Amino acid sequence: MTPDRPGAPTIPAPRVPGRYAVALVCLGNICRSPMADVVLSRQVEEAGLAAQVRVASSGTADWHVGKPMDPRAAAALRAQGYDPSTHRARHFDAGWLEEHDLVLVMDEQNLADVGGRSERVQLFRDHDPVGTGGVVPDPYYGGDEGFEEVLTMVERTSAAVVAAVLDSTEQSATERA
């Protein structure tokens, strides 16, 4: 896929034409990646792609498996009209690399934990139209403002990811025709 903006990374073609699976990964799957999951899922739905695009999140550590997201992350989402209530933390395993077309990690440690950068494994903020290539800071040990900052990053980056996925699924459909 050709990026719409200079310096923007490409996303890999879908493994199954007309379908796309995106995994979002952070450390504990209670702050950053579930926030991105909720936002990206809504943006996918609003773009009319819910039947074609699957979004999931997980953490590289298993400390919080089965638990809801951090209450501060949930509050930041609710304040902007999102529903965080269905999230339950999951643990990343190597199978996710084969099950998802694109794995977006929140920071360099998460990148190392999932096996490093590849065509299908990228930093989430590689797609951020502001500050491309940075990390999503972990707000866990800070105050509410950190969760609001993360939500702002997640919303704008998710919009860019949806645009790239839309382009990818359209290109895939054109190639099948």
Rank of each mutant, 00 (worst) to 15 (best):
L166Q: 14
P84I: 07
E99G: 04
P71C: 02
E145F: 08
E108P: 00
M1H: 13
E148W: 01
E155G: 02
V25S: 05
T10C: 05
A94K: 04
G18F: 12
A89I: 00
D126I: 08
A89G: 08
D128N: 15
L151Y: 08
Q109P: 00
E46Y: 01
G133C: 08
P6L: 11
A51T: 03
D93V: 09
A23Q: 09
T152H: 09
G48C: 12
E108N: 01
I11E: 07
A51H: 07
V114W: 02
G133I: 09
S118I: 02
T132P: 10
A13V: 07
V135M: 05
V135I: 11
L49W: 13
S172H: 10
V114C: 09
V39A: 08
A21Y: 06
A47L: 13
V154E: 01
T152L: 06
V22G: 11
D138C: 05
D37E: 15
D70C: 01
R5Y: 07
G66C: 12
R19D: 02
P6N: 08
D62A: 15
P3V: 09
D138Y: 07
G131H: 10
S57T: 02
T60S: 02
V162Q: 07
A23M: 13
A50F: 04
E46M: 12
A94Q: 03
G143N: 10
H64R: 13
T157M: 06
D93A: 08
A51G: 14
Y141F: 14
M153C: 01
G48W: 06
R88W: 03
L77N: 09
H87F: 01
P14F: 08
K67H: 13
M35F: 05
A36T: 12
G59D: 06
